[in-house]
Design a protein around this nucleic acid. Structure first.
Lengths: 133, 133
DNA sequence: GAGTATAGTGATACTCGTTATCAATTTGGT
DNA sequence: ACCAAATTGATAACGAGTATCACTATACTC
């Protein structure tokens, strides 16, 4: 059994990436994750990091957020639908569910005749640890 | 008085961009807007389009959304806080306000000790006109 | 355990959206 | 009209992410 997905092979590189993802509880960019792997002594190419992250994302094993600068950040998380409260400074994230939001979104979309609806809600702030005293 | 912001000069290029933005009610990428300007016969460099869009965005005169592919789209809109229901196909957007969401977000952030909180909520779907029959 | 089809890897070239550079031009105020 | 400062635009540069392709590792079969 692999931690990646059905039909995907278990390789040293993928295991290492999953291991690193499990070590942090915040969002990290592909480049940051690659740097962490190199620092740990795991030799993994940057292309493999991108490919594996895409696999994980497709399997809903990691969440992806798109920053204002267009760079994507990744984080291991639960598979059921949820939103994030993300620290702008350290990337630490808190998962949250909001049934009220889901309902409002669905009603909104239905009212305007939109189908095949999805949504994106991310909350950004500065966490207590990173706040200037 | 300029339509761009305080301290900014009113130039032919900026007026043309604002004009084009007013013509469409959906989100458009910088490249699409540039193409529209060229088609209209307005000679504007692509760099100026990017610079002007950034000015408008900083002045909260246009909204920006970041697609999954990292490309940004822009749309002229009201200055007060709101969310969007955006058609994936044609870019058409409906503005909406959701006090319930705002309240949930604030409560959520306070509960976890986050400060300086902002949020992003975009709803994507296929509008009635673009839906396959 | 050896053989093998095939998925995965990685160095690198490439794409493409966006930003920086900088000389030439335009604007707003005097 | 004059001038300082802002703006423009052609183009070079940048950077995240993807495609290429020869080589390697994995999983499966016998």
């Amino acid at each position: 059994m692999t931690s990646i997905g059905v039909g995907a092979r278990s390789t040293r590189q993928r295991e290492a990436l999953v291991h690193v993802l499990d070590e942090v509880d915040g969002f990290r960019t592909a480049q940051q994750l690659h740097a962490m792997l190199v620092e740990r002594g795991d030799k993994v190419g940057i292309a493999t990091v991108y490919r594996s992250l895409q696999l994980l994302a497709d399997a809903d094993l990691v969440d992806v957020i798109h920053g204002d600068d267009g760079e994507s950040s990744y984080r291991r998380c639960s598979t059921r639908h949820h939103h994030h409260l993300v620290c702008r400074v350290c990337g630490r994230a808190v998962e949250a569910q909001a049934p009220a939001v889901e309902m409002w979104v669905d009603a909104m979309a239905a009212e305007h005749g939109f189908s095949d609806v999805s949504h994106d809600l991310e909350i950004f702030g500065t966490c207590a640890d990173c706040a200037p005293r």
